[in-house]
Amino acid sequence: MRMVKKWNAGCLFAVMVLLLFSAAALAAPSGNGAKTPAPVVDKAGIIAKDDVQRLSERIREVEAKHGVRIGICVQKSVKGSIGKAANQLLDESYSGGTNGGIVLLLAMDSRDWHISTDNAMRMRITDDEGIPYVGDQFLGQLKKKDYAGAFESYVNAVDTLLVYYEQQGKPYRPSDEFSFLALLLAVIASCIGGWLVRAGLISSMSNVTHAAEAGTYLERDSVNITENSDTFLFMNVTRTPKKKHKSGWNGSGRDSEHGGGGGKF
């Protein structure tokens, strides 16, 4: 009987240890990089388990395809700078990828988002153009509270940029892409420019013009100002909102080891 009790206690202990390990694996960034944390950590409970499962599979697929580490972590709250917290999370839980790592951290109370990349990933997804591109892909869904959709878009965007890098040998830059609108505006502006050049050249062919004033014949010494009064009438105040960067973009958290950027959603 005592043997059975001992066996039961052993089994219970083993289950508890197993549970503890499982919890640790799913937990927020704690521990060291040697562990393999879950690709998706939702501490705010905003996405369904099925979605977490589906996203995790998709992330693992992309990770395997490109030899990188990708993470998504949703926190109820983040103390201090979200950029630094994302960097710490990347270093502790999503580093070690052959071709770098990237993590998306959300703070639900302040509605901040931040993507952190290590230097290897920074070469593939640049701070100035790659990160804003990734942000643009999911931010609309994030604002509409379609969190699962937003995270999937995030993973797809990272996949797209990594594929581009592997195929082209250089990071993706949206500014390199052809823009029909920019071409149309450039054509219109250059036509106006050409027309102005034409008008200027034609006007240079003649210097015959009526004299509008007689300043040359003014005797400067004779000028005598007899009345000089300035009266304040009124004041107009106009307020012009500053054009904010889309997504409330900021690059806080960047340092010599980390790239990325973020904003509000």
Partner: peptide, 25 residues
Amino acid sequence: MPDETITETSVYECIRSGTMRFSRI
């Protein structure tokens, strides 16, 4: 300002009078 630009436009009426001479226009 961080979020906006405020432009205060003060409007004045300036009265000027004077005499002057032009020669040989």
